[in-house]
C-alpha cells in the first residue's frame, strides 16, 4: 500500500469530489491526496510472511467497480490519513472513518 507514488504537491484545480475528512468535515478534493486501497495491512512481523503473501501485499489490489474502501490524506488540511468508502462508479461517498476504525 505504500507503493503508490504520492501525488505531486502541485496540482491543477480539476478535482471535483467533496470529501468528508473525519477531522475537518467536508473539504474539496483539491486539498487531498489519494492513498490507494484501504485495509491492506502490513504484517507486524514481515519475516514470518511467505513470499506469495508478501507479493500479494505489495502488488495486488481490488480495483472494483462499485464500493471501494480507500485511503485519502488531507494533505492540504489536517494532514491526517483516513479511510473513505466510495463507489467508484457513481463517485458517491458513503462513509469516512479514521485509521484504525473498521468499515462501517
Amino acid at each position: 500500500m505504500k507503493l503508490l507514488p504520492p501525488r505531486s504537491p502541485i496540482k491543477g484545480s480539476q478535482e471535483m469530489l467533496l470529501i468528508p475528512c473525519p477531522y475537518c468535515g467536508n473539504r474539496p478534493e483539491i486539498e487531498f491526496a489519494y492513498g490507494g486501497e484501504a485495509h491492506v495491512v502490513r504484517a507486524a512481523a514481515p519475516r514470518t510472511v511467505d513470499d506469495t503473501a508478501w507479493t500479494e501485499f505489495l502488488y495486488f489490489r481490488k480495483n472494483p467497480r462499485g464500493d471501494h474502501a480507500e485511503r485519502w490524506r488531507h494533505a492540504y488540511g489536517c494532514g491526517r490519513f483516513f479511510n473513505v468508502k466510495r463507489n467508484t462508479y457513481t463517485d458517491q461517498i458513503e462513509a469516512s472513518y479514521r485509521i484504525g476504525e473498521t468499515l462501517p
Binding site: P6, A33, G35, R71
Partner: peptide
C-alpha cells in the same frame, strides 16, 4: 522532500501509530 515526508507520515499514521 515532499515525497519522503508524505511516506513517513503514511507509515507513522497507519502502520506505526
Amino acid at each position: 522532500a515532499a515525497r519522503v515526508l508524505t511516506m513517513m507520515e503514511d507509515y507513522l499514521q497507519t502502520e506505526f501509530p
